[in-house]
Amino acid sequence: MRADTFDRYIRRESLVHRLDPRLKVVVALVFILATALLPDGAWLGFALSWLLIFWLTRLAWLPYRVVWKRSLVIVPFLLAAVTVLVNVPGTAVFTWQIGPFTLAITDAGLVRFVSILIRGWLAVQVAILLTAVTPFPDLMHALTHLRVPAILVSIISFMYRYLFVLADEAQRLMRARQARSARLPGTGLHGGSLFWRAKVTGHMVGQLFSRSLERSDRVYNAMLARGFQGRMLTINPHVMRRFDWLAGGTAVSIIVLIQLIARNDLHIY
């Protein structure tokens, strides 16, 4: 595994990439907040929000395909939201008779369901865009500047640093297990009962824990050897330029405008 295995940053030289990371974090949060605030059935608002995301993706010289692909992480949540279909009072659109159960899907329920889905999907795309145009260390640095407790940011940065190292260890453990688990071809047997398989995995977790603990000791000693005094330092002072303020102001204005248009549009119908 390489150091950038888990990296989600896509290097480009675009305007969006060059913006101050603090600004990108704040705008992304405002945008996500705004999508969460769009009311059910605000189709125009949803469409405009998506257009803004699409436009920003182009502005960052990224293919929209990347954002689309990564946004599929929310698909499992379809399952949780799908239950909302049958709870909302309204005019029934479909009714099913399943044994003793009668399920009715109402028009209001349908609007709610689709709205939840779109809101979740828009929000996740904003987050994807943020991580695609901001290197993770910059993101962490920005969080420190935005008054997120330094201790938490340091822990997350450390975790990020050792993620691929420990993931590599985990993969090695799994490779070792596979090498020792002969399987007769075509039988599909994994060897041992489910209970046994879980136990072996548990021992692997314990093993990984021991190794991680030893590693954290070594890391700490190495840090002490290099003069660590309990605080992470940086030589990258982020400075907000005039262009950053301008871009941030424009982005927030557009987001607020979308919100107004969406609500206005709902009042008309």
């Binding site: 975790m159 050792y162 420990l166 954290s216 309990g230």
Partner: peptide
């Protein structure tokens, strides 16, 4: 910081 960071990577 090092202990918590490495342990978080361990959980992951």
């Amino acid at each position: 910081i090092p202990v918590a960071g490495v342990m978080a990577a361990f959980i992951f």
